[in-house]
Each structure stands twice: as C-alpha cells, then as structure tokens.
C-alpha cells in the first residue's frame, strides 16, 4: 500500500497541535499526539508495523477536531483517522435497532436510561414518538462503510421521513449519516447554563456560557472509550478537575453520562426537561 500523503504531513510536523489535543494532554501519552498517530499510520502503510498497532493508534482519538482547528495547513485529521479505523479495526458490535414507539412526525432519540419523549410532548404540546437506543444509534459501526450501509438503511427505515430529536452528538451523527433530519433537544427546550459549563466538542453550546475549552474534553466521543478505556478515564478525571467540584451543566447527554460516571452532579437538556416536567 502506498503511503497516504496526508499522513506524511502530520508525521513530519513538529507536534504543533499537541497542546490542544485532549487525549495527548489528558493522558500524557506521546502515542496520542496526532504526529505520533500519523507516524504509526505512515509506517503501517509501508509495512513497518502491524495492523493491530496501527489500529490501536488510530483509536486514540475522541474525534473532537481540536487538532484540525489548530492546524495551519488544514490537515483533515479526523477524516484520516476514521478512514484508517475502517480498514484497521473490526466493526464494533451494536445492539439491534429498536422500533419507534408512536406515530408522531417527531421522534425523541432516548439514548440513556431516561425516557423523555413524553415530557417533550408535554412541553411542546404536540405528539412525540420515541426510539430507545443503548448505543447511540450504533454510531460505533459508522467508521466501517461496508457494514455501516445496512445499518444506516435500517435507521432510515425506522425513522422514515420523520425528524429525530437528539440530545447528543453521537446520535446526531448517526442520524445525519442516515439522511434523517435532526433537531437538538437544546433547541426545543433551551437549558440555561448553571454551575460550571462543560462544552461538548460538537453540537449546540449553552447560550451565554464561556467559550469552549477543548482540554476539558470528557473523553466520551470517538472510539477512545471503547478502545482505550483507561485513557478515556484519564480524560474524564482531567475534565472533572478542570471543571471544579461543583455542579456541571452540559448541552450533550453523552458528555453528561461520562461526567456522571465520574461522580459529578450534572444537568443536561434531558434532566432539564424532566425537571420542568416535575415542577
């Protein structure tokens, strides 16, 4: 296989984005710098390292894109890594897709243990259907174009022409790729910032909050938590330290899950909505 010239640019770069990479900073691992990852991929493409090692390297990423924002030569790092993972890593097992409950044109994608479709229906005064998913619409499968296609078709079949109401960037990505129109819960039921704000890498931010800080990444995004759980825990700990010990608010429920797992008191759009319902 010929070396991907895009990996060369990063492999020859003096690590100028390492300071914004939450994985490199949060773990301290040199291997997690985009330069080191791309060096491994370059060497793999030349047959110098095996696929297993290259796959591990390509999975040292939360898919946050901070490196791309810092890069002056516009390297598409997350795209390169996704493409590499599709080749190097086996498809992730995903749960069977559930059926949609209800016939409304708006479908609440309930991606954690909480059921909030009815609360949204009450809040909006209109019908809202529900789709429960335990793995964010099988987003882990989407790095693999071949096996992803059938899965994306299944999502499209389930949701048809309806609009998916999502509360996390993973579900949003899966729905987007399936060609399903999405709207974020935060837009339908805005949650004001309270306590310390954790900004997700993608998706709407809480209005009025201070600018996002990539280095407070909680580690929930991308393949990191699945492939390198210890490093994801490092990021979770760093994020909690940077966010202080008090209550945290975030617009992304997947981030909320990750931060709660670290013991934090977290408010997210779903808990906000359910709180409104309770009062």
């Amino acid at each position: 296989m010929n070396p991907d010239p895009r990996t060369q640019t990063c492999a020859l770069c003096p690590r100028l984005c390492r300071h914004v990479c939450p994985v490199a900073v949060g773990t301290g691992r040199e291997a997690a710098t985009p330069t080191a990852i791309m060096t491994t991929l370059l060497r793999w493409s030349r047959g110098e390292v095996d696929s297993d090692l290259a796959g591990q390297a390509a999975a040292l990423c939360t898919d946050c894109g901070a490196c791309e924002e810092a890069c002056l030569v516009n390297q598409p790092v997350t795209d390169i890594l996704r493409e590499a993972r599709a080749i190097l890593l086996p498809p992730v097992d995903i749960d069977p897709l559930q059926t949609v409950e209800g016939g409304a044109t708006m479908v609440a994608i309930e991606c954690d243990e909480r059921a909030w479709g009815q609360a949204l229906a009450d809040h909006l005064g209109r019908g809202v259907a529900r789709l429960r998913t335990t793995d964010h619409l099988g987003v882990g499968r989407l790095d693999h174009p071949l096996s992803a296609t059938a899965h994306l078709v299944a999502i499209r079949d389930r949701l048809g022409g309806r609009t998916a109401v999502v509360s996390c960037h993973s579900c949003a990505r899966a729905a987007d790729l399936a060609g399903i129109g999405t709207i974020h819960l935060q837009e339908l039921c805005p949650m004001p910032p309270s306590g310390t704000v954790h900004h997700p890498c993608k998706g709407p931010q809480l209005e009025g909050a201070s600018p996002p800080e990539a280095l407070a990444c909680c580690g929930a995004g991308g393949p990191l938590a699945h492939a390198h759980p210890e490093s994801a825990s490092d990021l979770q700990a760093v994020a909690l330290r940077r966010l202080g010990g008090g209550p945290i608010s975030t617009s992304d429920t997947r981030c909320g899950q990750q931060l709660r797992a670290g013991g934090a008191e977290v408010q997210d759009p779903v808990s906000h909505l359910l709180g409104l319902e309770a009062t």
């Binding site: 040199e30 291997a31 080191a36 390297a57």
Partner: peptide, 27 residues
C-alpha cells in the same frame, strides 16, 4: 507504566531532523 509497543514506539525519536530523515527516508 506501559510497555506496549504503541507507547514505547512513540518515544523512539524527538524532533532531531536527522532522526526524522532516517524515519522518513531510510525507514
């Protein structure tokens, strides 16, 4: 502590251009 190749490989070189040259050209 790590002795994984993923980690130890990443510490083989700093930014000495000679090692970059060796990595890139001489492999």
């Amino acid at each position: 502590t790590s002795s994984l190749s993923l980690d130890t490989d990443a510490y083989r070189r700093d930014l000495w251009p000679r090692d970059t040259l060796r990595m890139y050209r001489a492999r």
